[in-house]
């Protein structure tokens, strides 16, 4: 006698395999997400909350919710607008010159010459030195009374009198921007050199055969192929420079007379000199919004680049 076994229908799982697969994927992200939450999102939320309160540390009795009071004060604060203007000069002055000289450096180091490896290594030096040390070194170089820069310029006859580079409101910003350019050039050199090395030689050879000159090859081959790197490097550098307060803090402390005060150094001053954490919180939130705007632009541009690849 043959026994027939009826196949039992499989019990349907509570969660479909597609959802389960998705959940497993997301569960791998949970530790990283928690870390991000604790170290980025929560502090940002706390800073936003802080900006809505009168929070002067030595006046705990006055601690209270004031809504947008700190933001109103910020709009009416002429020093804030000055720092914002200074920030724009600081960021775009620094990054544009870093890019130009960095690109020139990368093109130079792409050429074959004796001692190229050594020169490439030396180029990195300004980037390797910590920002605070760079600030101290250049502060002494600029020193009007016994600094090397004045001494050399007077000796070669380019100047008659000593110039107080960091003490003159007209020169101080240019001087700190110059230092930042010196420090940031290696970043662009490295990034663009890596990009240049990835450009196939065949393209240049073919263009050369077709009669393209040096400028035409640069314009029609080098620049378009380096565009993704240029965009990424410039955008990240803009964001870093906007937040970068070390150099100015060490070299001028924002002076003279706020001539080099940028928004990030002004935030530090409000937080740790005036102990006005509410106002410093409002300044931080404005900085965050500016950064978000840059990040949005950056993401939009890089998305466009990905789509074209």
């Amino acid at each position: 006698m043959t026994m027939l076994t009826l196949a039992k229908p499989r019990t349907r799982p509570l969660i479909g395999w597609r959802v389960r697969k998705l959940l497993i994927g997301y569960s791998y992200l949970v530790p990283a997400a928690l870390c991000m939450l604790a170290t980025v999102v929560v502090p940002i939320m706390l800073a936003i909350k802080m900006s809505l309160y009168a929070d002067i540390l030595y006046k705990p009795q006055d601690y209270r919710f004031i809504g947008l009071g700190n933001y109103v004060r910020l709009v009416e604060d002429p020093v804030f607008w000055l720092t914002l203007r200074n920030s724009v000069v600081w960021v775009f002055g620094s990054v544009s010159l870093q890019f130009v000289f960095g690109f020139a450096g990368a093109l130079l180091l792409q050429q074959a010459f004796t001692g190229r490896a050594l020169v490439r290594t030396l180029t990195l030096l300004p980037w390797i030195i910590p920002g605070v040390v760079v600030g101290l070194i250049w502060e002494w170089l600029y020193q009007p009374n016994y600094g090397v820069i004045n001494d050399i310029l007077i000796r070669v006859g380019l100047m008659q009198e000593r110039v107080a580079w960091l003490s003159s409101p007209d020169l101080a910003m240019a001087a700190v921007v110059f230092t930042n350019v010196w420090r940031g050039i290696p970043f662009f050199v490295i990034m663009l050199l890596a990009g240049l090395q990835a450009v196939p030689d065949e393209l240049y050879e073919a263009a050369h055969v077709d009669g393209a000159g040096v400028f035409a090859r640069f314009w029609h081959i080098t620049l378009p192929l380096l565009r993704p790197i240029i965009v990424v490097a410039t955008a990240t550098r803009i964001i870093w420079t906007f937040n970068y307060a070390d150099l100015i803090f060490v070299m001028t402390g924002g002076g003279p007379a706020n001539a080099t005060q940028i928004t990030s150094t002004y935030t530090l001053l409000q937080a740790y000199s005036s102990l006005d954490f509410g106002y410093a919180g409002a300044l931080s939130v404005v900085l965050l919004l500016v950064m978000l705007a840059f990040t949005w632009l950056y993401l939009r541009t890089t998305k466009g680049l990905e789509d074209t690849e």
Partner: peptide, 11 residues
């Protein structure tokens, strides 16, 4: 000195 406006303790 011309640097007076930014001279601190060290300077």
């Amino acid at each position: 000195p011309p640097s007076a406006a930014t001279d601190g303790f060290v300077e």
